[in-house]
Amino acid sequence: MMILIIGGSSSGKSAFAEDMIVSLSKEKKKYYIATMKVYDAESEKKIERHRILRKGKGFITLEQPVNIQNAIDKIDSRECNALLECISNLTANEMFLGDIPKVADTVAGKIVDGIKQLNDNVSQLVIVSNNVFEDGNVYDSATMEYIKAMGLINEKLGMLADSIIEVVAGIPVYIKDC
């Protein structure tokens, strides 16, 4: 089963997603698939905030900033749940990995395919994604391509997901119900 959780910056989506997977998992093993790379003090602080947020919740953390399907090798049985946090970092990492940014279709295709495989290898998969679509700004072409990739991924995951929940100021709004 796949659950997609979407929200803006500091909307409370991570805390909501963590609580959700904790309540879904009970005695089941649960993995936290982290995608953020440490590249400066700010990202380190962000990662630390998330670590504190999920401390004591019993997650096994897997670092998988690119090639999300490779997380499967680190999971020891299908009888577990996983929280993938988050699509925006994964997309940025995949897109800007080489010297030249990849096109949106390529990035979206690879990520969605990887997530499909991951979903086939766990019991319940909760995915956190971001609403990066509503600031009305026009950015440089690489950023616009990134937004396009995020849109494509959300759209495709939205089709695959059993349920979609938007988090607004910490409150869940049900977009697609299972």
Binding site: S11, F133, E134, V168
Partner: peptide, 8 residues
Amino acid sequence: DEVGNGIV
């Protein structure tokens, strides 16, 4: 205003 739904 909701201001979080955009690019960092």
